[in-house]
Write a protein that binds this DNA or RNA. Sequence first.
DNA 1: GGACATGCAGCAATCGGTTGATTAATGATT
DNA 2: AATCATTAATCAACCGATTGCTGCATGTCC
Lengths: 330, 330
Amino acid sequence: MQQSTLKKLSEVLGISISTVSRALKDHPDISENTKTKVKELATALEYEPNNYAVQLRTRQSNLLGILVPSIDNFFYDSFIAAVEEDARLHGYSVMIMQSRDKAQIETANLHLFRKNMVMGLFASISIETEDMTPFRKLEEQKIPVVFIDRVAEVEGYHKVCLADAEAARIAAEAIIEKKKKRVLGLFGHPHLSITKIRCASFKETFEKHAPKTKLTIDYPETINESKRVALEILKGKNRPDAIFCMGDQILIGVMYAIHKLKLKVPDDIGVIGISNGLFPTLYDPKITYVETSGFKLGKLAFAQMLSCLRNDHTPEEVTVESLLIEGGSL
Amino acid sequence: MQQSTLKKLSEVLGISISTVSRALKDHPDISENTKTKVKELATALEYEPNNYAVQLRTRQSNLLGILVPSIDNFFYDSFIAAVEEDARLHGYSVMIMQSRDKAQIETANLHLFRKNMVMGLFASISIETEDMTPFRKLEEQKIPVVFIDRVAEVEGYHKVCLADAEAARIAAEAIIEKKKKRVLGLFGHPHLSITKIRCASFKETFEKHAPKTKLTIDYPETINESKRVALEILKGKNRPDAIFCMGDQILIGVMYAIHKLKLKVPDDIGVIGISNGLFPTLYDPKITYVETSGFKLGKLAFAQMLSCLRNDHTPEEVTVESLLIEGGSL
DNA sequence: GGACATGCAGCAATCGGTTGATTAATGATT
DNA sequence: AATCATTAATCAACCGATTGCTGCATGTCC
């Protein structure tokens, strides 16, 4: 681990450490002559500034944190991919942590982020999160937090969300357009604001444009629950003629049930979901879905973060627009 | 960002910085009396040692690097989850980077790892990787590298692999037991050692136990290629009666083709794969697969890393055993 | 009472950079 | 020749924690 340091460079060239430091930074005080000499030696010796020393002195870590419930999830994956890409382009490194939907792990991770002095944090809160003080601690230290996707239901934070209401509305409208009469809407954890918003918008759209539709709502939280709920309801009488799935997990469970019961999509039953894009394309016919791009979300969130880092931006809520991708399942 | 520091503590208590530092570390030179006073104040003021200062002084970053081709992949996800869990328990932080299967990004990331002074690295090499010097640079700096899954075909490295040959053999044996006559084997990128090993073992098993089997081999690299290849071959005459899919991507493509052609699994065609576990369970009947657990791999790799970090362990190759999970598709 | 061991705490250098203040050298001005 | 501006490089303090060495009290023993 024989790193070359400013000291080593300065000794070789017989000049002072500070001159070397400034030469490498193109400081106007240093002559062109010296600059080129220093730079040449620096590349020759593969000089790399010691991150920890720089951070200690400047208090600039160039580190951004990402906190998500879990990374084994295509939505967050594409989000992370987008952020990481932009971060690298802007000279930031990224530290990723998972809360696993436990408030306790979330708090521990926030602590680690602080300890590592991230300059900003992207966070999607866990299902359990009720107390926002651990997040506030970051803000107290002037570390901007940009909430994404699953955001806190509190004012005064930077938030970048999917157009949740819009996405649910688009899905509802698509169902209405197909003149479906008995609709099953499956949503995620009822505690999350994202669920509440989508569910409310979904119901509202039906009330407004097709009040006679028979709407059944349920909240399965896992693939298995979704499977069970779907099987139960699809086996019952007055089977729905369309199912809306709020997320991939639910969709997977529903499709399993549909195959199990040997129902034909879309003739026996129409299916529509909200998804990042992979899973709906695995089925035949492909599932019609409202796209919620983690990638776009990441790009937008990063832009938001940059403006936070530059000036003390006022809290703002931004949304990623939704798009209906027709797949033939409705 | 008003962190409390040793200096602040020392000023409050009216003792020197070094005494505070030693008190917090239970150094024998310090009296119990002082120790308790210091510790109380430390917790009261939420003192946290500054990571960067500690690292600068001690050259211990307690950071581990993980380099994988991509994180949007259930196998690597579960691997990362396992490593992260163990790392946290042992007081390490984890820095994750993706090579996106580009040698250039891989090298850039390795550079970042060095810059951040990771104490050890887990790496799954990219498809493009031919030159191992960027990895060697880490080893030169005494940073242990544990290769996982997609390992270098070179001696002298720590490697933790799936039992690739074994997994392919188990799959082949399962196919043979079902007395299938015309088998299509689909493998991944032919450049990777993992592909070569699995393919060789697969063929070998047939030659040994069922030499009369008609074996067709292909190497689709993406979902779409897999879809195309499967459609083409399944539409041809002398349709295979069993398909082996080396990975999830291939399986997804194959299943799409099978549904498209309205073939019945397992009556018209048997399917078996190698997988981490999620995708095979999405279909009905569930796909029979040889389990290759990213989670177990992670646990094993971390253990290996720990022993590397402790003593200068001799290079060693470890494998995760494989397990056949019957799903009804063969 | 003097020599010595022991307990407890402080001094100061160090890790590798950064940066404001300062010095030295050169040339221009009067 | 003395003064001043300009350029180019050095000095030295600093970020926060660690650690070898030193120094001061006490207490003990002969």
